[in-house]
């Protein structure tokens, strides 16, 4: 266990999130069982009012989750000094590989929360709340994921052992065997660029088609949603493979986390912010597509999708510009 203020903050934070989620789950169960929009009984009114509470809690859970994602990365960065061979957050995560699962889970939960909020939003636009049962079942399904993430995180920190001098002997020889690779295996720069710009072009074309022809078939919407996911993965790989080295201006430094540091002008925030945002809105538009079957919210979803698609295109273009900026304008050349 690494006893560190950041670690304590993260563990306490995930405990709070977990409690809030379980609280919501209890309400969700009551709503699933007792909900009847056709009745105007006192019980129904209470349930209706509890939906506000759950929605508020979920917004906070999402907010805390994104904060905790950053805090986790920062903390991993702050404690890297404790491990032999670790140069940055990557090294700390390698020191107990479940750290990667935690990072991954935090991102997934963030996406799942925002999808929930998207569904919640369109549901609240319809007078008969047609998605009420669905969204609360979704919420109940989300709870174990949040619990698992909290557990993994605890497991990660408990499993970390600082390579320090103990009273009996120097740590040098016991740890010499474990040389932790400090940089992520990275893809070759040239091909990665083709893949990245190719995937980006497809993403933008898909979104553009959906924006121009909002009545397009649902399958195009699903394809776009799935492609957004692919583009997200390609983008993260590309940041590691070549965007990072152009920003760092060294051919060997691939750390995706250092971009968030002051010495790189905090460029990571707009970079990841626009990427996450762009993917998120595009996926929200895809996730709400099946509910267009329901009459009472068809128009509302339609309008929301148009808005979301527009925002998505904008953010993804911003993301690609930020990613491309140093490649065009810096003097650094990764290869000739």
């Amino acid at each position: 266990m690494i006893f560190h203020t950041g670690v304590l903050a993260l563990v306490a934070g995930s405990l709070i999130v977990l409690i809030m989620t379980l609280f919501s789950v209890a309400i969700a169960l009551r709503i699933i069982i007792g909900w009847d929009i056709t009745k105007s009984t006192a019980k129904q009114l209470i349930l209706e009012r509890q939906t506000y509470l759950v929605a508020t809690i979920m917004k906070y859970v999402m907010g805390f989750q994104i904060l905790s994602l950053f805090l986790f990365v920062y903390t991993a960065d702050d404690i890297h000094k404790l491990f032999v061979g670790a140069m940055c957050a990557t090294g700390s995560l390698n020191a107990n590989p479940i750290g990667w699962s935690v990072l991954f889970a935090k991102i997934v939960i963030f996406f799942l929360c925002t999808m929930w909020l998207a569904i919640n939003r369109v549901d609240e636009l319809a007078e008969d709340y047609p998605l009420v049962r669905f969204k609360y079942k979704y919420l109940i399904a989300l709870a174990p994921v949040i619990a698992l993430e909290a557990y993994w995180q605890l497991d990660y920190f408990l499993g970390l052992r600082a390579n320090v001098i103990t009273s009996c002997c120097s740590s040098l020889f016991s740890d010499e065997g474990i040389t932790v690779a400090s940089s992520l295996a990275s893809l070759p720069v040239g091909p990665s660029m083709y893949v990245f710009y190719g995937a980006g072009a497809v993403e933008i074309v898909l979104l553009f088609l959906l924006m121009k022809r909002p009545g397009s078939s649902p399958s195009l919407r699903y394809i776009s949603g799935a492609w957004s996911l692919i583009f997200f993965i390609v983008s993260v790989a590309s940041i590691i493979s070549f965007v990072s080295i152009y920003y760092y201006e060294t051919p060997v430094h691939h750390c995706p986390f250092d971009l968030l540091q002051k010495q790189y002008m905090f460029i990571g925030y707009p970079l990841y912010g626009s990427l996450f945002g762009g993917i998120l809105f595009s996926m929200a538009a895809a996730v709400t597509e099946p509910f267009k079957k329901i009459d009472s919210i068809r128009t509302e979803i339609h309008n929301a999708q148009r808005r979301w698609t527009k925002i998505s295109i904008l953010l993804i273009i911003v993301f690609i510009i930020i990613a491309t900026w140093p490649i065009v304008f810096s003097n650094f050349r990764a290869y000739d």
Binding site: G6, L10, A12, L67, S68
Partner: peptide, 10 residues
């Protein structure tokens, strides 16, 4: 950031 997490979140 850590302080924020320890105080504002609760």
């Amino acid at each position: 950031f850590v302080l924020f997490f320890l105080t504002v979140v609760p």
